[in-house]
Amino acid sequence: MANVCFLLADGYEDSEMKNPYDAMNEAGHQTVVVGLEKGAELKGKKGTVAYTSDFSISEVKVDDYDAVIIPGGSAPEALRVNDEVVEFVKQANEQGKVIAGICHGPQVMISADILKGVNTTSYIGIRDDLKNAGSNFLDQEVVVDGNIITSRTPKDEPAFIKEILNKL
């Protein structure tokens, strides 16, 4: 079974965390929530779910994980300005780990500068940011390009989850 790291900060899209997280656990994978601080209570923007971070980003090593999942909402904005988060995602990509982002999740990948020449999708609001990062934006429910998996919105979660599970 795989070790899956969820990168999370306050204000994530509730279902984009809950549904992939539950699906990974149901499939028997080991999951951890990594935040900017250990033990922080992280609330979804709709208030339907909350998670406590198992580790801070400064405590984790990329080598310990097979996949990194980045839910959307406003959380990626808080994550992408943290140098340790950006370096973690950069290293995960260098090691060919699965990196999956939905909605605004790819913002962290943009900051890690790992999307040049990569096919991606996202929430329409960051489409131009993806293009400016050198990505080929596709308006599809899920796009898989090598180790990178991206999706648009909560309605695309089933396809997003399916592709993550396929990769693991």
Rank of each mutant, 00 (worst) to 15 (best):
K131R: 14
S53V: 08
G28F: 04
I126P: 09
P71H: 08
A78E: 11
N136A: 12
K43A: 15
G72V: 12
I148Y: 00
A50G: 08
G105S: 07
S56R: 01
D83M: 09
K38W: 02
D54V: 09
I149K: 06
L115E: 02
G73P: 04
F88L: 02
G117V: 12
S58I: 15
I148R: 02
H29A: 10
N132G: 13
V81M: 11
V34K: 00
P106G: 12
I70Q: 08
Q91L: 14
V86E: 00
E26A: 15
G28V: 13
K90L: 08
D129C: 02
N25C: 11
L36H: 09
G39T: 11
V68A: 06
K46T: 12
A100Q: 04
G125Q: 10
E84R: 10
I126Q: 08
K45D: 13
N25V: 15
L79K: 02
G28N: 05
S122T: 09
Q140H: 02
D22H: 07
V143K: 08
P20K: 05
E84D: 15
A78C: 03
A50Y: 00
D54I: 03
G125K: 03
A27N: 03
G134D: 06
G146Y: 10
F88R: 01
G117Q: 01
K61W: 00
T120V: 13
Y65A: 14
E77L: 11
E87T: 15
V143L: 05
S111R: 02
Q91S: 08
P71R: 10
N147C: 12
N147H: 14
A27S: 09
E26P: 02
S56C: 02
E87C: 09
V86Y: 03
N19F: 09
K38E: 15
I149T: 04
G134T: 09
Q91P: 07
S56N: 07
Q30K: 09
Q30C: 08
Q107G: 04
A133G: 08
K38M: 03
L115A: 13
I124C: 04
Y65N: 15
G72T: 15
D66Q: 06
K45S: 12
A133P: 10
I57F: 06
G44S: 08
E87G: 13
N132S: 06
H104G: 10
I70Y: 05
E41S: 14
L130C: 13
E59H: 05
I110Y: 05
V49H: 01
L36P: 13
E26I: 14
D128Q: 13
V86F: 01
G146M: 06
G101P: 03
S58V: 12
V108N: 03
C103M: 09
K116L: 02
T120R: 05
S53L: 00
E41W: 05
I57A: 10
Y51L: 15
Y123S: 06
D64C: 11
N132I: 00
D113L: 01
V49L: 04
R127W: 07
R80A: 13
P71K: 11
A92I: 09
D22R: 06
D63Y: 03
D54K: 01
N93V: 12
L130V: 12
I110E: 12
A92H: 06
L115K: 04
S56F: 06
F137R: 07
L138S: 11
A23C: 11
K116S: 14
V108S: 05
V49T: 15
A133D: 10
D22L: 14
G146Q: 08
S53R: 01
Y65F: 15
I70S: 06
